[in-house]
Amino acid sequence: MGEDLTLFLQYAFNGIAMGAVYAMIAAGITLVYGLSRIIHFAVGELVMFGAFVALMVWEGTGSFSLAIATAIPVLAFIGLITERVVFRFTLREPLTGFIVSLGLILVFQGTAVEIWTANPKYSQPPLQGAWELFDITVRKQSVLNLAIAAVVLAVCYYVLRKTTAGKSVRAVSDDPEASALMGIPVKKVIMATFIVGSALAGIAGCIIMTIGFITPYIGAVYLLRGFAVALIGGLGNIQGAALAGIGLGIAESLAAGYVGPGWTDAYVFGTAVLILLWRPTGLAGGAEGARI
Protein backbone atom coordinates (compact mmCIF):
# COMPACT_ATOMS: atom_id res chain seq x y z
CA MET A 1 0.00 0.00 0.00
CA GLY A 2 2.66 2.45 1.08
CA GLU A 3 4.89 1.34 -1.75
CA ASP A 4 2.11 1.76 -4.27
CA LEU A 5 1.47 5.29 -3.06
CA THR A 6 5.16 6.15 -3.21
CA LEU A 7 5.37 4.88 -6.74
CA PHE A 8 2.29 6.85 -7.72
CA LEU A 9 3.79 10.01 -6.27
CA GLN A 10 7.05 9.24 -8.02
CA TYR A 11 5.29 9.05 -11.39
CA ALA A 12 3.30 12.17 -10.61
CA PHE A 13 6.44 14.15 -9.82
CA ASN A 14 8.23 12.88 -12.93
CA GLY A 15 5.28 14.11 -14.96
CA ILE A 16 5.08 17.57 -13.46
CA ALA A 17 8.53 18.49 -14.73
CA MET A 18 7.68 17.60 -18.33
CA GLY A 19 4.22 19.12 -17.95
CA ALA A 20 5.75 22.47 -17.07
CA VAL A 21 7.51 22.48 -20.44
CA TYR A 22 4.23 21.72 -22.23
CA ALA A 23 2.59 24.51 -20.27
CA MET A 24 5.15 27.05 -21.43
CA ILE A 25 4.86 26.08 -25.08
CA ALA A 26 1.09 26.13 -24.77
CA ALA A 27 1.22 29.56 -23.16
CA GLY A 28 3.03 30.89 -26.21
CA ILE A 29 0.55 29.26 -28.61
CA THR A 30 -2.36 30.49 -26.59
CA LEU A 31 -1.11 34.09 -26.41
CA VAL A 32 -0.47 34.33 -30.13
CA TYR A 33 -3.79 32.74 -30.96
CA GLY A 34 -5.70 34.79 -28.44
CA LEU A 35 -4.68 38.02 -30.11
CA SER A 36 -4.08 37.25 -33.74
CA ARG A 37 -6.32 34.20 -34.19
CA ILE A 38 -3.36 32.67 -36.01
CA ILE A 39 -2.72 29.01 -35.32
CA HIS A 40 1.05 29.24 -35.28
CA PHE A 41 2.29 25.78 -36.23
CA ALA A 42 5.95 26.70 -36.44
CA VAL A 43 6.10 27.08 -32.65
CA GLY A 44 7.61 23.59 -32.40
CA GLU A 45 10.48 24.76 -34.59
CA LEU A 46 10.95 27.82 -32.36
CA VAL A 47 11.30 25.45 -29.41
CA MET A 48 13.91 23.54 -31.42
CA PHE A 49 15.81 26.75 -32.23
CA GLY A 50 15.72 27.75 -28.59
CA ALA A 51 17.17 24.39 -27.64
CA PHE A 52 20.03 24.66 -30.16
CA VAL A 53 20.89 28.22 -29.20
CA ALA A 54 20.90 27.29 -25.53
CA LEU A 55 23.04 24.24 -26.27
CA MET A 56 25.64 26.31 -28.09
CA VAL A 57 25.91 28.88 -25.32
CA TRP A 58 25.84 26.30 -22.54
CA GLU A 59 28.54 24.17 -24.17
CA GLY A 60 30.58 27.23 -25.03
CA THR A 61 30.46 29.07 -21.72
CA GLY A 62 29.28 26.53 -19.16
CA SER A 63 26.70 28.96 -17.87
CA PHE A 64 23.09 27.84 -18.02
CA SER A 65 21.73 31.21 -16.99
CA LEU A 66 23.68 32.81 -19.81
CA ALA A 67 22.19 30.17 -22.14
CA ILE A 68 18.68 31.19 -21.14
CA ALA A 69 19.60 34.85 -21.24
CA THR A 70 20.79 34.38 -24.83
CA ALA A 71 17.96 32.16 -26.02
CA ILE A 72 15.29 34.64 -24.89
CA PRO A 73 16.43 37.63 -26.98
CA VAL A 74 17.43 35.47 -29.95
CA LEU A 75 14.03 33.84 -30.09
CA ALA A 76 12.27 37.12 -29.36
CA PHE A 77 14.11 38.53 -32.35
CA ILE A 78 13.05 35.60 -34.54
CA GLY A 79 9.49 36.21 -33.34
CA LEU A 80 9.78 39.87 -34.26
CA ILE A 81 11.15 39.08 -37.71
CA THR A 82 8.49 36.47 -38.51
CA GLU A 83 5.79 38.91 -37.42
CA ARG A 84 7.21 41.82 -39.44
CA VAL A 85 8.08 39.84 -42.56
CA VAL A 86 5.27 37.31 -42.61
CA PHE A 87 2.47 37.29 -40.12
CA ARG A 88 1.50 40.95 -40.11
CA PHE A 89 0.31 40.49 -43.68
CA THR A 90 -2.00 37.71 -42.64
CA LEU A 91 -3.78 39.33 -39.71
CA ARG A 92 -6.92 39.94 -41.73
CA GLU A 93 -7.01 36.34 -42.91
CA PRO A 94 -5.69 34.35 -39.90
CA LEU A 95 -6.08 31.09 -41.75
CA THR A 96 -3.52 32.27 -44.28
CA GLY A 97 -1.25 32.89 -41.31
CA PHE A 98 -1.72 29.29 -40.30
CA ILE A 99 -0.77 28.02 -43.76
CA VAL A 100 2.19 30.35 -43.95
CA SER A 101 3.44 29.00 -40.65
CA LEU A 102 3.61 25.61 -42.37
CA GLY A 103 5.96 27.03 -44.98
CA LEU A 104 8.04 28.43 -42.14
CA ILE A 105 8.39 24.95 -40.64
CA LEU A 106 10.20 23.80 -43.79
CA VAL A 107 12.44 26.85 -43.71
CA PHE A 108 13.30 26.57 -40.01
CA GLN A 109 13.94 22.83 -40.16
CA GLY A 110 16.12 23.10 -43.24
CA THR A 111 18.08 26.01 -41.79
CA ALA A 112 18.68 24.08 -38.58
CA VAL A 113 19.97 21.09 -40.57
CA GLU A 114 22.31 23.38 -42.48
CA ILE A 115 23.66 24.92 -39.26
CA TRP A 116 23.68 21.99 -36.84
CA THR A 117 23.26 18.89 -39.10
CA ALA A 118 20.46 16.38 -38.57
CA ASN A 119 22.40 14.32 -36.05
CA PRO A 120 21.15 14.34 -32.47
CA LYS A 121 22.99 16.61 -30.06
CA TYR A 122 23.30 16.10 -26.33
CA SER A 123 24.28 18.30 -23.48
CA GLN A 124 24.97 17.72 -19.82
CA PRO A 125 22.27 19.07 -17.55
CA PRO A 126 23.55 21.94 -15.38
CA LEU A 127 22.38 20.08 -12.29
CA GLN A 128 23.11 16.39 -12.01
CA GLY A 129 22.05 13.82 -9.48
CA ALA A 130 18.93 13.48 -7.40
CA TRP A 131 17.55 13.93 -3.90
CA GLU A 132 15.66 11.24 -2.01
CA LEU A 133 12.54 12.68 -0.41
CA PHE A 134 10.26 10.23 1.41
CA ASP A 135 11.44 7.42 -0.90
CA ILE A 136 10.73 9.53 -3.94
CA THR A 137 13.69 10.15 -6.21
CA VAL A 138 13.66 13.80 -7.17
CA ARG A 139 16.02 14.67 -10.01
CA LYS A 140 17.70 17.99 -9.35
CA GLN A 141 17.41 19.22 -12.90
CA SER A 142 13.67 18.48 -12.86
CA VAL A 143 13.29 20.74 -9.85
CA LEU A 144 15.25 23.50 -11.55
CA ASN A 145 13.19 23.15 -14.72
CA LEU A 146 9.99 23.23 -12.76
CA ALA A 147 11.15 26.36 -10.96
CA ILE A 148 12.05 28.11 -14.22
CA ALA A 149 8.69 27.28 -15.73
CA ALA A 150 6.83 28.38 -12.63
CA VAL A 151 8.63 31.72 -12.52
CA VAL A 152 8.13 32.36 -16.22
CA LEU A 153 4.44 31.49 -16.13
CA ALA A 154 3.93 33.52 -12.97
CA VAL A 155 5.56 36.54 -14.59
CA CYS A 156 3.33 36.13 -17.65
CA TYR A 157 0.30 35.88 -15.44
CA TYR A 158 1.29 38.90 -13.38
CA VAL A 159 2.01 41.03 -16.45
CA LEU A 160 -1.26 40.08 -18.08
CA ARG A 161 -3.37 40.67 -14.97
CA LYS A 162 -1.73 43.51 -13.13
CA THR A 163 0.06 45.77 -15.57
CA THR A 164 -1.30 48.30 -18.05
CA ALA A 165 0.48 46.53 -20.86
CA GLY A 166 -1.18 43.28 -19.86
CA LYS A 167 -4.54 44.94 -19.65
CA SER A 168 -4.22 46.25 -23.17
CA VAL A 169 -3.28 42.73 -24.32
CA ARG A 170 -6.42 41.38 -22.74
CA ALA A 171 -8.47 44.20 -24.17
CA VAL A 172 -7.21 43.44 -27.68
CA SER A 173 -7.93 39.78 -27.13
CA ASP A 174 -11.48 40.53 -26.05
CA ASP A 175 -12.35 43.10 -28.68
CA PRO A 176 -9.72 44.40 -31.09
CA GLU A 177 -11.97 47.03 -32.66
CA ALA A 178 -13.07 48.60 -29.40
CA SER A 179 -9.46 48.54 -28.19
CA ALA A 180 -8.34 50.39 -31.29
CA LEU A 181 -11.02 53.00 -30.69
CA MET A 182 -9.80 53.39 -27.14
CA GLY A 183 -6.35 54.22 -28.42
CA ILE A 184 -4.63 50.92 -27.76
CA PRO A 185 -2.01 50.32 -30.45
CA VAL A 186 -3.50 47.00 -31.52
CA LYS A 187 -0.88 46.16 -34.11
CA LYS A 188 1.96 46.81 -31.69
CA VAL A 189 0.29 44.67 -29.07
CA ILE A 190 -0.05 41.81 -31.54
CA MET A 191 3.58 42.21 -32.52
CA ALA A 192 4.51 42.02 -28.85
CA THR A 193 2.64 38.75 -28.38
CA PHE A 194 4.56 37.20 -31.26
CA ILE A 195 7.77 38.28 -29.57
CA VAL A 196 6.70 36.99 -26.17
CA GLY A 197 5.24 33.77 -27.60
CA SER A 198 8.51 33.03 -29.41
CA ALA A 199 10.53 33.82 -26.32
CA LEU A 200 8.39 31.40 -24.31
CA ALA A 201 9.07 28.73 -26.92
CA GLY A 202 12.75 29.56 -26.60
CA ILE A 203 12.74 29.07 -22.82
CA ALA A 204 10.91 25.79 -23.30
CA GLY A 205 13.72 24.87 -25.70
CA CYS A 206 16.34 25.64 -23.03
CA ILE A 207 14.60 23.22 -20.69
CA ILE A 208 14.27 20.53 -23.32
CA MET A 209 17.97 20.79 -23.98
CA THR A 210 18.59 19.70 -20.38
CA ILE A 211 16.25 16.71 -20.65
CA GLY A 212 16.91 14.95 -23.90
CA PHE A 213 18.64 14.92 -27.26
CA ILE A 214 17.78 17.57 -29.80
CA THR A 215 17.58 17.39 -33.57
CA PRO A 216 16.09 19.77 -36.14
CA TYR A 217 13.05 17.51 -36.25
CA ILE A 218 11.96 17.51 -32.60
CA GLY A 219 9.57 20.41 -33.14
CA ALA A 220 6.54 18.38 -34.22
CA VAL A 221 6.35 16.47 -30.94
CA TYR A 222 6.33 19.60 -28.82
CA LEU A 223 3.97 21.39 -31.14
CA LEU A 224 1.41 18.58 -30.86
CA ARG A 225 1.70 18.44 -27.08
CA GLY A 226 1.66 22.20 -26.71
CA PHE A 227 -1.32 22.43 -28.95
CA ALA A 228 -3.32 19.77 -27.16
CA VAL A 229 -2.57 21.55 -23.89
CA ALA A 230 -3.59 24.94 -25.29
CA LEU A 231 -6.84 23.38 -26.48
CA ILE A 232 -7.68 21.64 -23.25
CA GLY A 233 -6.79 24.72 -21.26
CA GLY A 234 -8.85 26.93 -23.51
CA LEU A 235 -7.22 28.93 -26.28
CA GLY A 236 -6.20 32.33 -25.03
CA ASN A 237 -6.03 31.24 -21.42
CA ILE A 238 -2.69 31.12 -19.61
CA GLN A 239 -3.85 29.59 -16.33
CA GLY A 240 -5.72 26.97 -18.32
CA ALA A 241 -2.56 26.18 -20.26
CA ALA A 242 -0.56 25.84 -17.04
CA LEU A 243 -3.04 23.46 -15.46
CA ALA A 244 -3.59 21.42 -18.61
CA GLY A 245 0.16 21.22 -19.23
CA ILE A 246 0.86 19.79 -15.81
CA GLY A 247 -2.13 17.50 -16.26
CA LEU A 248 -0.81 16.16 -19.56
CA GLY A 249 2.66 15.67 -18.12
CA ILE A 250 1.29 13.65 -15.21
CA ALA A 251 -1.04 11.67 -17.46
CA GLU A 252 1.83 10.72 -19.77
CA SER A 253 3.98 9.77 -16.84
CA LEU A 254 1.29 7.60 -15.27
CA ALA A 255 0.67 5.95 -18.64
CA ALA A 256 4.40 5.25 -18.88
CA GLY A 257 4.42 3.74 -15.42
CA TYR A 258 1.25 1.71 -15.47
CA VAL A 259 -0.15 0.95 -18.92
CA GLY A 260 2.43 1.61 -21.61
CA PRO A 261 2.31 4.41 -24.12
CA GLY A 262 0.32 2.86 -26.97
CA TRP A 263 -2.91 4.80 -26.83
CA THR A 264 -1.76 7.87 -24.87
CA ASP A 265 -2.00 10.19 -27.86
CA ALA A 266 -5.48 8.96 -28.63
CA TYR A 267 -6.57 9.68 -25.04
CA VAL A 268 -4.95 13.11 -25.08
CA PHE A 269 -6.56 14.24 -28.29
CA GLY A 270 -9.78 12.38 -27.50
CA THR A 271 -9.95 14.42 -24.29
CA ALA A 272 -9.31 17.58 -26.28
CA VAL A 273 -12.18 16.70 -28.63
CA LEU A 274 -14.58 16.01 -25.78
CA ILE A 275 -13.65 19.19 -23.97
CA LEU A 276 -13.99 21.24 -27.12
CA LEU A 277 -17.43 19.76 -27.66
CA TRP A 278 -18.52 20.12 -24.10
CA ARG A 279 -17.11 23.57 -23.49
CA PRO A 280 -15.90 25.02 -26.77
CA THR A 281 -13.81 27.67 -25.02
CA GLY A 282 -11.87 25.18 -22.95
CA LEU A 283 -12.16 24.01 -19.38
CA ALA A 284 -11.29 27.32 -17.80
CA GLY A 285 -12.99 29.43 -20.43
CA GLY A 286 -10.96 31.46 -22.91
CA ALA A 287 -11.17 33.64 -25.96
CA GLU A 288 -14.19 33.23 -28.18
CA GLY A 289 -13.66 31.38 -31.41
CA ALA A 290 -13.50 33.84 -34.23
CA ARG A 291 -15.14 33.44 -37.58
CA ILE A 292 -12.98 32.13 -40.38
Partner: peptide
Protein backbone atom coordinates in the same frame (compact mmCIF):
# COMPACT_ATOMS: atom_id res chain seq x y z
CA UNK B 1 -21.24 16.49 -36.30
CA UNK B 2 -19.11 18.63 -33.97
CA UNK B 3 -19.49 21.51 -36.41
CA UNK B 4 -23.08 21.72 -35.26
CA UNK B 5 -21.85 22.68 -31.82
CA UNK B 6 -18.66 24.60 -32.50
CA UNK B 7 -17.64 26.76 -35.37
CA UNK B 8 -14.86 28.89 -36.74
CA UNK B 9 -11.32 28.28 -35.59
CA UNK B 10 -12.43 26.04 -32.80
CA UNK B 11 -13.91 23.68 -35.30
CA UNK B 12 -10.74 23.65 -37.41
CA UNK B 13 -8.72 22.82 -34.33
CA UNK B 14 -11.20 20.23 -33.28
CA UNK B 15 -10.91 18.44 -36.62
CA UNK B 16 -7.16 18.52 -36.10
CA UNK B 17 -7.58 16.72 -32.80
CA UNK B 18 -10.00 14.25 -34.42
CA UNK B 19 -7.47 13.44 -37.11
CA UNK B 20 -4.78 12.77 -34.51
CA UNK B 21 -7.13 10.33 -32.79
CA UNK B 22 -7.91 8.59 -36.09
CA UNK B 23 -4.23 8.17 -36.94
CA UNK B 24 -3.53 6.59 -33.56
CA UNK B 25 -6.43 4.20 -34.16
Amino acid sequence: LPSLRTSGHYFVILTFAVSEVISVV
